[in-house]
């Protein structure tokens, strides 16, 4: 028979809170990407304003996790669920910040003429979105295999980011009028690449929660 029913309920509550925060962070990232790719200043503003709620949820989750650790003295998988949940939370808050950073680039670029089309930027945005969505799915389903796939996708995001940088540098060399916009676009690509990194961190936390092992820094093996 299940003992500590009260504690089990609190662990469930923790997971639900993390998922609510994940939904907010993911929405912020999606909106920021859309605002950036479609020059939508209003949407970018929405992302910037919405970040305070994500920050507030982080505080709430910090307090809740601290309370669980102090009052219930969890062990084994329960302990990992809480520590892993905290790691996920930290990354969700950073995802919110990256969405805001990207939204600021979108705001700036929306006031300028469009840059030459760069399909790699769309590809990087799609990669980051897929990684994020799969990382959250892996967290919900405790799916180590999916989490590992997310980690392995990170190289693709890194490669695209570098290719975008090279492309814009080449464009700026041949056309000096786009330098200001080009720099902002390079920074935006860097934010997208960071979103992919943070999705990887979430996926690593899933492996830690489920298996108790760390695949930080070595998921390519």
């Amino acid at each position: 028979m299940e003992q500590r029913a009260h504690f089990s309920k609190k662990l469930e509550d923790l997971k639900v809170k993390v998922l609510r925060m994940a939904a907010l962070s993911e929405t912020a990232v999606h909106k920021a990407i859309k605002a950036f790719l479609e020059n939508d200043a209003d949407l970018a503003e929405e992302v910037i304003v919405g970040d305070s709620l994500i920050n507030q949820m982080e505080d709430d989750l910090d307090n809740f996790s601290l309370e669980l650790l102090a009052l219930d003295q969890p062990m084994a998988v329960d302990l990992r669920t809480i520590i892993g949940g905290q790691r996920v939370t930290v990354n969700l808050e950073r995802l919110g910040d990256e969405a805001v950073n990207l939204a600021h680039r979108a705001l700036f670029l929306s006031t300028r003429p469009p840059l030459p089309h760069n399909p790699r930027m769309e590809s990087l945005a799609a990669t980051a979105r897929t990684m994020l969505s799969n990382a959250f799915k892996a967290y919900v389903d405790e799916d180590v295999s999916l989490a590992t796939q997310v980690c392995r996708m990170d190289d693709k995001a890194d490669d695209l980011n570098i290719a975008i940088l090279r492309q814009f540098v080449a464009d700026m060399v041949s056309e000096s009028r786009i330098v200001e916009r080009g720099v902002h676009a390079i920074i935006a690509a860097r934010h997208l690449e960071r979103i992919a990194d943070l999705a990887t961190n979430v996926a690593e936390s899933v492996v830690f929660i489920v298996e108790g092992t760390s695949m930080k820094h070595n998921c390519k093996e």
């Binding site: 299940e2 062990m75 084994a76 998988v77 990992r80 298996e211 108790g212």
Partner: peptide, 19 residues
């Protein structure tokens, strides 16, 4: 044993799921 026991029965016991 208290962070990542190998056996499911151990984990269930130390996390208070039975006993």
């Amino acid at each position: 044993m208290f962070t990542n026991p190998a056996n499911k029965q151990t984990e269930d016991y130390i996390t208070g799921r039975f006993g």
